[in-house]
Simulated scan of single mutants.
Amino acid sequence: MARVLYWHLTPQEVLAKPYPVGKLLHWEIRCIISKESYSSIYWFKAGVPYDKEPILGLAFYAIGISKELEDEMIEFIHGKVGGRLMRRGERTFFADARIGIDNEYVAGFALSMEDKFDARCEIWLEFDLLSDDEVKSLYTAKAVPIA
């Protein structure tokens, strides 16, 4: 059984290939606005780290993005997933948000961010307990084994 990170996936690659959702530990959507600016939305199966206790939901942060665009992104994400907005430092959390973890949901979320914010999104997916056949059937060229 293997633990594997698949990174730098396009939404189209993820949309085209269903994966074993029960083995998904983490997904992340990075929205690249320019060379210097991007945002990240992420989910962890065990909850996103907030203070000393994880919370069920999503987290978001932005690097090199104007406050206005960051606020617009937060509003857009909140409209999609709901939840209770919480802030800690540079991160915004969507506690108890409505989140999907299958390939269609994650890819669709990324595509909606691309459309809304004229961004290029890439997706990172981390799995545990994948069989050798599952590892080979997914996104082999973009696989990074995790020890």
Rank of each mutant, 00 (worst) to 15 (best):
G79L: 06
K35N: 13
D71T: 11
K35M: 04
I101K: 15
I65E: 08
L69M: 13
E114Y: 04
G79Y: 07
F117G: 11
K80L: 15
I101H: 12
I101E: 01
C31M: 13
R87N: 10
S40P: 00
L129P: 00
V135S: 04
N103W: 02
L138A: 02
A107T: 10
P20V: 02
Y6V: 03
K23E: 02
K80I: 12
A107I: 09
L85H: 10
E68N: 10
I41S: 09
A97F: 03
F94V: 10
I146A: 05
V48C: 01
M73R: 14
I123E: 01
R3S: 11
G83S: 07
I146G: 03
P145E: 07
K116V: 06
I32C: 05
M1K: 14
S39A: 14
A97E: 00
G47S: 08
F127W: 08
H26D: 02
L69H: 09
K116I: 03
A62N: 04
L130Y: 06
R120C: 01
T10P: 01
V48L: 02
E90G: 15
G22V: 04
L138T: 07
I29V: 15
L25P: 00
Y50S: 08
D115K: 15
V21C: 12
F109S: 03
E104V: 15
V48I: 11
I63M: 07
N103V: 09
V144Q: 13
G89V: 03
S112I: 01
K45L: 11
E134I: 04
D132G: 14
S131R: 06
L56H: 14
Q12M: 04
V106D: 03
V135F: 06
A16T: 03
D118E: 07
S34C: 03
F109Y: 04
P145I: 05
